[in-house]
Design a protein around this nucleic acid. Structure first.
Length: 490
RNA sequence: CGGGGUGUGGCGCAGUCCGGUUAAGCGCGCCUGGUUUGGGACCAGGAGGUCGCAGGUUCAAAUCCUGCCACCCCGACCA
């Protein structure tokens, strides 16, 4: 296998942070905006986000949620109604105090999340058990005034989807919470080809206002966890705070049970870091804005023949369908750059398959297919006169490529998790950046706080609860209530 | 928000310590022309900078002083 590393980006294995900012700039995904902590999506970066949206939205709609849109501004008094919610979010809310040249009588929060304004609306709309469940999802931007920011992973303004549901019973709301967690897990696994841990958050890590928070956590190459999606069971915290009541069929007025859940553009950052290599980013076929790029190898004597063939092949290939969507194909017909430049360029941008078309290939009615990860060359036959192409082989290459990415992600995740019952081991694993540690926890927040103070590690996600006395808490030595994944986080 | 670092054509940097004729430089990129083209081409010519911003010191400031802003790294906080 040939290996090439890009000239203008840091080596991923040597300096992940630098590599990350380098590829974002060089692959033209995003750029820093003139406003602190804000980024501009460049078209290629936005195209990736659009793919993420399309794929996740499909899964969300399949659960029965409808798309809606609520306003950007939330009156201060609304935000303040749920005590722990306001406590959790107030340090990072941006406020609008003036409008139209005059001071507002009540400041407006730029939404950090929309539970509050949705709660106010739903208290109007929900009257009867027949109005339930109500399941809304919106794709929007939110603002959280973070101190330290990084493109995609943490920006002041970020893009996400937030789903909100209200249910007649506690059980139904709990089921919804878990259903969405599984939507997120399978989306990460099957669409983004990421391996994630999923499960419950500890008390100290849960969403402000939630009864329980569930998460999918990815583990980055530097061993730090990336919270990539959360699903919250909100109990009746918001329905009591916002007075969302319904009359049940037993003629008794009851508060609804609510959930909320979100995935942000942060997951694009996780995608970049997880799959990329020294040549740039590597995109899963479903997410790639361009799945196949044709690079003609042009010589003077047969230039027009090659270019014409390339153009015809794009038209043929665009008729292809892969995984129930039109194949996304591009031909790089620029005559001012050499093939080697184009190879490097499209590898940087993570295009799954490159098709090389040179004079020798035209003579043989074939293209040379080169997958982004292995770069192992495979000839694919075509016939211009009958406008046919060896689609099955191309699809197989894409399938195999996706399979390799997924397998590698799975192996990497396993490699970055160590089970131990020795606290010194935990300290050692965390400080050396080897990843997450799976160990017992006595369920006490004090224990979590002490471990955090000593190691900076927090409980990223609870694997499962423990009933037997044989498992001890890694810190206190008391019988463990949970097996927990401990680690540093983004 | 703490600790450290950096801001000089589009990008990456030298020059700053020790102010002045090294009186704005280099590499890449960009433009024009030509030769090239199976892994980031070469030659020739050319365009492009009030040195992050605002004050101050001085005969003189990219260089010294003060304040501010932005970005990067390491922590703390958070999706």
């Amino acid at each position: 296998m040939n290996t090439f590393s890009a000239k203008f980006i840091a080596k991923k294995s040597e300096n992940l942070s630098q590599w990350y900012t380098d590829v974002i700039a060089q692959a033209e995904l995003a750029d820093y905006a003139p406003v602190r902590g804000c980024m501009v999506y460049r078209p290629y970066g936005y195209a990736i986000w659009e793919r993420v949206k399309t794929l996740l939205d499909r899964r969300i709609k399949a659960t029965g949620a409808e798309e809606a849109y609520y306003p950007l501004f939330i009156p201060r008094s609304f935000l303040q109604r749920e005590a722990s919610h306001v406590k959790g979010f107030s340090p990072e809310v941006a406020w609008v105090t003036h409008g139209g040249g005059e001071e507002l009588s009540e400041p407006l929060a730029v939404r950090p999340t929309s539970e509050a304004i949705i709660g106010v609306m739903w208290s109007k709309w929900i009257q009867s058990y027949r109005d339930l469940p109500i399941m809304h999802n919106q794709w929007c931007n939110v603002v959280r005034w973070e101190k330290a920011t990084r493109p995609f992973l943490r920006t002041l303004e970020f893009l996400w989807q937030e789903g909100h549901t209200a249910h007649r019973t506690e059980q139904e709301a709990r089921e919804e919470t878990m259903k969405i967690l599984e939507v997120y897990r399978s989306f990460a696994s099957d669409d983004l080809l990421l391996s994630v841990l999923s499960g419950k958050k500890s008390e100290s890590q849960k969403f402000a206002g939630a009864v329980e928070t569930y998460t999918i956590e990815a583990v980055m190459p530097d061993g730090k966890a990336l919270q990539s999606g959360t699903s919250h069971f909100l109990g009746q915290n918001f329905s009591t705070a916002f007075n969302i009541k319904f009359l049940d069929d037993d003629d008794i007025e009851k508060f609804v049970w609510t959930t909320s859940w979100g995935v942000s553009h942060r997951i694009v950052g996780g995608l970049i870091m997880s799959h990329g290599d020294d040549s740039g980013i590597i995109l899963p076929p479903k997410v790639a804005p361009i799945q196949v790029v044709i690079v003609p190898i042009i010589f003077d004597e047969n230039k027009s023949q090659i270019l014409e063939t390339a153009e015809k092949l794009v038209k043929i290939l665009q008729r292809g369908e892969y995984q129930e969507e039109k194949l996304r194909v591009k031909a790089d017909l620029d005559e001012t750059t050499k093939p080697g430049f184009k190879f490097a360029h499209w590898e940087l941008k993570g295009v799954p398959i490159r098709l090389e078309l040179g004079p020798k290939d035209v003579a043989n009615s074939q293209l040379i297919a080169v997958p982004r990860d292995t770069r192992q060359k495979v000839p694919l036959k075509f016939d211009l006169s009958s406008a046919t192409f060896e689609f099955d082989s191309l699809y197989r290459l894409l399938d195999e490529y996706a399979g390799r990415l997924k397998l590698r992600a799975k192996e990497e995740l396993e490699k970055r998790i160590t089970e131990t019952d020795n606290y010194n081991d935990l300290k050692e694993f965390i400080s050396s950046g080897r990843g997450l540690v799976l160990a017992g926890w006595d369920g006490l927040t004090e224990t979590e706080d002490m471990v955090k103070a000593e190691t900076s590690a927090t409980i990223r996600v609870l694997k499962n609860s423990v009933s037997s006395d044989s498992v001890k808490c890694i810190y206190s030595g008391r019988p463990a209530k949970y097996l927990a994944y401990w680690g540093l986080a983004y």
